[in-house]
């Protein structure tokens, strides 16, 4: 497999960095190499932020930012009003949106799953924010980027609350690929 590069769009405080970390950890549990890193800026709560994940079969030596992602993950679709989330997208790139309906993303194959709804149903809310980064791992597993077993293993390594696992399983079931 060539290196697989993911760019995650969210707002400061929504857990985009933790989503990146969970994805990298799950990929490592799948036996791959992975790194996760935030955009090296001054993160502010509520401001649009990006974080990145690289997954490869070989050790990763690239430190520069991801310019041509294979997958764009949008945890908060409202950032699309102010950020061109498709910037630099590979021609064969895909999009995963948090939302109940897929949107037209300039023709790129786009999937949607209501992560916010899943988090609210599971009462996964911290400081008023629904937790999106654990259910999203289930969606990424459904897309074949990681295995569901590794997604669950990664979540369990970072969080003890089993509702996170239920949420990931629900996202796995609800996402139609």
């Amino acid at each position: 497999m060539a290196m697989f590069e993911v760019r995650i769009h969210s707002r400061g405080g929504q857990g985009g960095v933790t989503a990146a970390r969970l994805l990298a950890l799950a990929a490592i549990r799948d036996g791959k190499y992975a790194v996760a890193f935030p955009f090296y800026g001054a993160e502010r709560r509520g401001a649009p932020v990006v974080s990145y994940v690289r997954i490869d079969d070989h050790p990763i030596r690239v430190y520069s930012q991801i310019r041509n992602p294979d997958l764009i993950l949008v945890l908060d679709p409202s950032v699309m009003d102010v950020v061109d989330v498709l910037q630099g997208m590979k021609p064969e790139g895909r999009v995963l949106l948090n939302g109940s309906e897929p949107r037209d993303m300039k023709g790129f194959p786009t999937l949607a799953v209501d992560l916010t709804g899943i988090a609210l149903r599971e009462q996964l809310v911290v400081a008023g924010n629904p937790i999106l980064n654990t259910p999203v791992l289930g969606a990424l597993a459904k897309m074949g980027i990681i295995t569901l077993d590794s997604a669950k293993a990664a979540i369990r390594e970072m969080f003890s609350d089993e509702r996170n696992i239920t949420a990931a399983e629900t996202a796995y079931k609800e996402l139609t690929v």
Partner: peptide
């Protein structure tokens, strides 16, 4: 680049 990068 390293201090905040998450790696194995």
């Amino acid at each position: 680049l390293l201090s905040h990068s998450m790696q194995p």
